[in-house]
């Protein structure tokens, strides 16, 4: 049983406790949306989940085991989309994505599928420096589709996307969910995900 569980988490950034007593439980096919004002710790929580930060207190468990102990096995199961697009401007769209596909041992088919899904196939030869902010973000998001990560960690994934692309993102998230994947996302837009759990950070804490 794939379950991600947070128990009584607290996070320290600099000398400020960003949040404390945060807990949740996420099973297959479930979505958790993080809400709260700027600086309430949404990004920090996602970076905790990605393993970049270590919690000040509390535990993060993946299948009942601490994510720090799981190490690479846990890293394999997550995909993280942050504020930075991780796009090399001098390489083409396809070369950019091919690198991530190769890094994760993905197939050429997965790469084509991801390019098609986010409507980048026509731009494949274009150097990424010529992409608009929205297109660059779509290239970033297509990284999610080249591999089979169970848990998606999305930090404001809809930034600079137009309405049509936001719908595509919603579709991708819905499909991921339907396949038993899990999503933790911080977003201000309504991505039309029915039955998503919500976690409010800042002010009142906890579920």
């Amino acid at each position: 049983m794939m379950v991600l569980e947070a128990r009584d988490l607290a996070c320290l950034r600099g000398d400020r406790v960003v949040f404390e007593h945060v807990g949740f439980r996420l099973g297959p096919g479930e979505v958790l949306l993080l809400e709260g004002p700027n600086g309430s710790g949404k990004s920090s929580l996602l970076r905790l989940l990605a393993g970049f930060l270590t919690p000040l207190a509390g535990r993060l468990l993946w299948q009942e085991r601490d994510i720090a102990e799981e190490g690479e096995a846990y890293r394999r199961t997550i995909a993280y989309v942050g504020h930075l697009d991780a796009v090399k401007p001098m390489l083409s769209v396809e070369a950019n994505l091919r690198f991530w596909a190769d890094l994760h041992g993905a197939t050429g088919q997965a790469l084509e599928r991801a390019l098609d899904f986010f409507e980048l196939a026509e731009l494949r030869e274009l150097p990424a420096r010529l992409l608009s902010a929205g297109q660059r973000r779509r290239l970033n998001l297509s990284r999610l589709l080249v591999r089979e990560a169970r848990l998606w960690l999305l930090d404001e994934p809809s930034v600079s996307l137009d309405r049509h692309s936001v719908a595509l993102l919603g579709e991708a998230m819905e499909a991921h969910r339907a396949g038993g994947g899990m999503i933790v996302a911080a977003t201000h837009l309504d991505l039309g995900l029915a039955g998503a759990a919500r976690l409010r950070l800042g002010g009142e804490t906890g579920t």
Partner: peptide, 8 residues
């Protein structure tokens, strides 16, 4: 950071 999340 993305490479850091990779398998290597």
């Amino acid at each position: 950071e993305q490479i850091g999340l990779g398998p290597l």
